[in-house]
């Protein structure tokens, strides 16, 4: 079977789950495309994914209420072994990237990380991935009975829910003791559309001047466009915006239809998180800012004049 570990957040199935289902279907490997739902109180999630997968395995336990890398890796490896999976697909989220190497080691399997494409040729998987801060596309091959794959968010076409409802099975797991104690959590909630799921992202950098400038310019424009909001590391470090909004090497990777960069210089670490966007738009007062080198459209000018003028134009 092809095992897909379902990703969800705040009670909603994540887009990456549908992208993994899409990836699994186009791969055409042997066996049912199987969803594994891990968590506590996940009945609704299981029913939702039953419309996209061939079968759904559900581990609904109080012990799984909180994510833990060792617990998740043990659960996924156990199911992969018992179900004789030939492929294990894991999302490219922070946690997916964290526990997937453990699954690979447990299964003595190769790990194809952050795949943007995967092809099966006579049992050998070939994947492409971005390297060198997303400046290079590298092709790697894994030839093994079982391969663990994590996918890059946004790279695969999402499978559409059909009207077939897959059968659900409860699974029993032998879970290890968790060793990492989480003693506190600072979650950053936003009412906006999620960065990695949005068609349009408006991002701000140091050029917006202040947290207030970000609110008026970046959030103002995003409101007009129904867009998600992103930020550079510089202003996250300055405390103007929450880390959750950071785009780049150490933040999120986005690939929207349009990425609008406001007062962002375009450091390679920032570009690595957004350079694959379909259309890139930049507003910067410095005509030599590196962001213009990868832009489709742009204005050389002061964001304090240009952005309010854009908002006014959109309101017309």
């Amino acid at each position: 079977m092809i095992l897909v570990v379902v990703e969800y957040a705040n009670g909603k199935v994540s887009k990456s789950t549908y992208e993994m289902a899409g990836c699994a279907r186009q791969l055409g490997r042997e066996g049912p495309v199987t969803a594994l739902v891990l968590g506590s109180g996940v009945a609704a999630i299981a029913s939702e994914v039953a419309l996209v997968f061939d079968q759904v395995l559900v581990a609904d336990h109080a012990d799984l209420a909180q994510y833990d890398a060792e617990v998740w890796a043990a659960a996924v490896a156990q199911i992969a072994r018992e179900g004789e999976a030939n492929t294990v697909l894991i999302g490219g989220s922070r946690s997916g990237r964290e526990y997937s190497p453990r699954v690979a080691v447990k299964l003595d399997a190769p790990l194809l990380e952050d795949a943007i494409s995967v092809v099966d040729a006579n049992g050998t998987l070939t994947a492409e991935r971005y390297t060198y801060l997303a400046r290079v596309t590298e092709k790697v091959e894994a030839d093994a009975p079982v391969v663990v794959v994590t996918i890059k968010q946004g790279a695969f076409t999402a499978a559409m829910p059909g009207n077939q409802v897959a059968e659900q099975f409860d699974v029993d797991l032998n879970l290890p003791q968790r060793r990492v104690q989480i003693t506190g959590k600072a979650t950053e909630k936003s009412s906006r559309i999620a960065l990695t799921e949005a068609d349009i992202v408006v991002s701000g950098g140091r050029g917006v001047g202040s947290a207030e400038g970000f609110a008026t310019l970046v959030e103002g424009l995003a409101d007009q466009l129904g867009a998600a909001v992103g930020a550079t590391r510089a202003i996250v470090d300055a405390g103007w915006r929450p880390y959750q909004e950071q785009v780049g090497q150490t933040g999120k990777t986005v690939q929207p239809k349009a990425y609008i960069a406001i007062g962002i210089s375009g450091a390679v670490q920032h570009l690595s998180g957004m350079s694959k966007s379909k259309c890139i738009v930049a507003i910067n007062k410095d005509a030599d800012a590196p962001i213009f080198k990868i832009s489709d459209y742009g204005i050389v000018g002061d964001v304090n004049q240009i952005v309010p003028a854009m908002i006014a134009e959109l309101q017309k």
């Binding site: 957040a9 104690q181 003693t183 506190g184 959590k185 600072a186 979650t187 950053e188 880390y243 959750q244």
Partner: peptide, 11 residues
């Protein structure tokens, strides 16, 4: 840093 914010830990 965790999925949706930051966490303090002990191990």
């Amino acid at each position: 840093d965790a999925e949706d914010g930051s966490e303090t830990f002990s191990v």
